[in-house]
């Protein structure tokens, strides 16, 4: 190895630029996650409904989203939409929408799972104590569902963050794109830049996701039933 290609990271504003690129990715992930929570909660509740048609439609939505790789969803949404309708979305917005569609489906399924995991006797005991259905929901079902849901939802955040690595492929200038720019710009001074830049990006993603997955594990242990 020639003398430290690592230095390329500290040339000019390179490292700050990488962090900026990571922030672009994180920002989209967090915004999509927030939207997914807002939309996924009602979706999950509706998935437990007794209405056959509602259940079928939501189940169909979930499976349709799940069966395809997220990259394919991104491509279809970003390229096809423009091609067919002429609507021209920025890649950032397209990524946000696709992640929200996907996140809502996943979140909805988690919510559904958390609700259906509540044993029947919890409801029956609530009614036996004279609680109204709305009170059973608020004081018996909701608190227990949230304990089950929280670790899984936090885990979904890490999946969302990891999935942002795909958006470079529809042209978002995020951390990988910035990395490529740095490598190309320094091709002659630092021929080994690729090793260090990609190792750094690997580490940055790890540093972004590791605390979140740790949080999910801690929550899971704390709320273990």
């Amino acid at each position: 190895m020639p003398d430290l290609g690592l230095n390329v990271l500290f040339e000019g504003r390179n490292f700050v630029r990488l962090l900026g690129g990571l922030w672009t990715a994180l920002w989209i992930a967090l915004a999509a996650m927030a939207a997914s929570v807002v939309l996924g909660l009602p979706m999950g509740v509706l998935m437990t409904s007794r209405h056959r048609l509602v259940k079928l439609a939501l189940r169909g939505y979930l499976e349709a989203i799940r069966v395809l790789p997220q990259l394919v969803l991104l491509f279809v949404f970003y390229f096809d939409l423009t091609y067919v309708t002429g609507v021209n979305l920025s890649p950032e917005l397209a990524a946000f929408i696709v992640f929200t569609l996907w996140g809502t489906a996943e979140m909805g399924d988690l919510v559904r799972g958390a609700i259906t995991a509540i044993p029947l006797h919890q409801y029956q005991s609530g009614y036996a104590l004279g609680l109204k259905p709305s009170q059973v929901q608020a004081f018996v079902v909701l608190p227990q569902s949230v304990r089950r849901l929280l670790p899984l939802a936090v885990n979904l955040v890490t999946r969302m963050v990891k999935t942002t690595s795909l958006i470079v492929l529809i042209g978002v200038t995020e951390v990988l794109k910035v990395g490529q720019q740095i490598i190309d710009r320094n091709r002659f001074q630092y021929p080994d830049a690729a090793l260090w830049v990609y190792a750094t990006i690997f580490l940055l993603y790890f540093l972004a996701c590791f605390p979140i997955s740790r949080l999910a594990q801690t929550l899971e242990r704390r709320f273990a039933v």
């Binding site: 080994d192 090793l195 190792a199 690997f202």
Partner: peptide
């Protein structure tokens, strides 16, 4: 578990040859 496949592949394909 805490890194995306895309980033792992970039490192393997473009980083390791160095």
């Amino acid at each position: 578990r805490n890194t995306p496949l895309v980033v792992q592949l970039f490192f393997l394909y473009y980083g390791l040859p160095k």
